[in-house]
C-alpha cells in the first residue's frame, strides 16, 4: 500500500492505496466522483480527461500515486454555486452532446485548450486539439461550435473562472 495525498476540486483527498490504483479509479471508486468516465481504458478516447496541476491528462493512464501533492480538477469541480461553468453552459446551449458519455472529457479538454491557446479559437485549432477525444454520437460539429462559444463566454467571465485551477 502507498499513502496518497492530493487536492481534488480544492479539497484535500488522502488514502492508503494499492500502488496499481489509477487516478481515474481513485476519483471514481474512492472519492465517488463518477463524472469522470472510463471509455476505452487505453488512453485513446479521452472520456477520462481531468486536470492535473492545470494540465489536461488522461486519468486512466496516470497512477494515483504519481499525483501525490498535485492539484486535480474534475468535471465536478468546474461549476460553482452560481451555476454551470461557461464551457458547460456552451455545450448545453449548442447541443454539444447526445448520449453525454464523452462530454466530461470534452469539456475538461476544452477548458485546458482555452487556458493554453486563449479565448479566440478557430475551427481548425479546435478540431486538431480534439485529437485525443472521441465522440461516437455527434459527428463533432456541435462540440466544435460549443467550444468556440464556451471560449468566448470564458473571456467575458474573466479570470474569476480560472480560480478553480
Amino acid at each position: 500500500m502507498v499513502a496518497v495525498n492530493m487536492t481534488v476540486n480544492g479539497k484535500p483527498a488522502s488514502a492508503e492505496l494499492d500502488p496499481r490504483t489509477l487516478l481515474v479509479q481513485f476519483l471514481r471508486d474512492h472519492l465517488r466522483l463518477t463524472g469522470t468516465h472510463v471509455g476505452c481504458d487505453t488512453s485513446q478516447c479521452g472520456a477520462c480527461v481531468v486536470h492535473m496541476d492545470g494540465h489536461a491528462v488522461k486519468s486512466c493512464t496516470v497512477l494515483a500515486a504519481t499525483c501525490s501533492g498535485s492539484q486535480v480538477t474534475t468535471i465536478e469541480g468546474l461549476a460553482n454555486a452560481a451555476g454551470l461553468h461557461p464551457m458547460q453552459e456552451a455545450f448545453r446551449e449548442n447541443h454539444g452532446l447526445q448520449c453525454g458519455f464523452c462530454t466530461p472529457g470534452m469539456i475538461m479538454t476544452a477548458v485546458d485548450l482555452v487556458h493554453r491557446k486563449g479565448f479566440a479559437l478557430d475551427e481548425t485549432t479546435i478540431r486538431e486539439e480534439l485529437e485525443g477525444n472521441l465522440c461516437r454520437c455527434t459527428g463533432y460539429h456541435n462540440i466544435v461550435k460549443a467550444i468556440a462559444a464556451g471560449a468566448q463566454a470564458m473571456a467575458a467571465e474573466g479570470p474569476a473562472q480560472q480560480v478553480a485551477e
Partner: peptide
Amino acid sequence: IGDPAVRAM
C-alpha cells in the same frame, strides 16, 4: 506526438 493530454505527461 500523441494528443494534447498525452503530450502533457
